[in-house]
């Protein structure tokens, strides 16, 4: 009896400790979310003043927010998914919609930007760029916002347009693309304090780097799959022999 009582006391004590820790953490989390949301709004200044905006985003500690970057990238992926599923009939690919795989779709939306940030950081450290990985990532994530906005505009528009007016639809889509990719390039130049020529060179190198990273990742994936497959096969063989 005593032992169980002791145990139950311990458990409640642990729970109480946990609760107090959570209680202490919750307000902190709340203030963190509040400041992040506030700082995310800075992107609308960046949209119209990219040079000042990206410079301050990196250097002003009051405006810098990696969590904000993560949030904008997550929003980009979600909007991409919503757009894919909710376009009007004339502009959607019904076959692809039926074969939708949500995690894969989200990953493929986000992965290129993460790959860009990593590859760009790798090359910029060789080409004496000023930016840290977090800087490059944050700037890239903020630069995806034009694409997100244009994707959002496309959703209601696709329900009102006929296919002969489809050029309006594609026009808005391509504006978003050009605007977004241009800002990714500008943010990279500003973060690393590059000239335009050097920035262009780094961009080309970064794209090559992205391809190399993807290639190595696939290679490792298949190698691991082969090795694990080999051991699994040995296991099944042993089980088969033993059960014989």
């Amino acid at each position: 009896m005593e032992k169980t009582a002791k145990k139950s006391i311990n458990l409640s004590k642990i729970l109480a400790d946990l609760w107090s820790a959570v209680k202490g953490f919750l307000p902190k989390l709340w203030t963190g979310i509040k400041t992040t949301v506030k700082r995310m709004g800075y992107v609308f200044y960046i949209l119209v003043h990219p040079f000042d905006g990206f410079y301050d985003l990196k250097n002003d500690p009051k405006r810098r927010s990696v969590a904000g970057g993560v949030a904008w990238l997550v929003i980009y992926a979600l909007v991409d998914l919503v757009r894919f599923q909710n376009l009007g009939y004339l502009f959607s690919d019904r076959g692809a919609q039926l074969a939708l795989n949500v995690p894969v779709r989200l990953m493929t939306a986000v992965l290129p930007f993460i790959l860009w940030a990593v590859a760009n950081w790798c090359f910029s450290s060789l080409m004496d760029g000023d930016g840290k990985l977090s800087d490059v990532f944050m700037a890239t994530a903020y630069a995806t916002v034009p694409i997100t906005i244009c994707n959002l505009i496309q959703i209601p528009l696709s329900h009102f347009l006929s296919s002969s007016e489809g050029s309006i639809f594609t026009f808005i889509g391509s504006i978003g693309m050009i605007w977004g990719y241009l800002y990714i390039f500008l943010s990279m130049i500003i973060v690393h304090q590059y000239s335009v020529g050097k920035g262009l060179g780094t961009a080309v190198l970064t794209i090559i780097g992205m391809a190399i990273i993807a290639f190595v990742a696939i290679l490792i994936f298949f190698l691991v799959q082969q090795v694990s497959g080999f051991f699994v096969e040995i296991g099944t063989e042993i089980i088969f022999r033993l059960s014989e």
Binding site: Y89, L90, R94, F160, S162, S163, S164
Partner: peptide, 18 residues
């Protein structure tokens, strides 16, 4: 036209209605 995935003709009918 939606059933048989005929987008061009669907669009023509939609334009008339719009």
């Amino acid at each position: 036209y939606n059933r048989c995935n005929e987008k061009e003709n669907y669009s023509t009918a939609y334009m008339a209605i719009r």
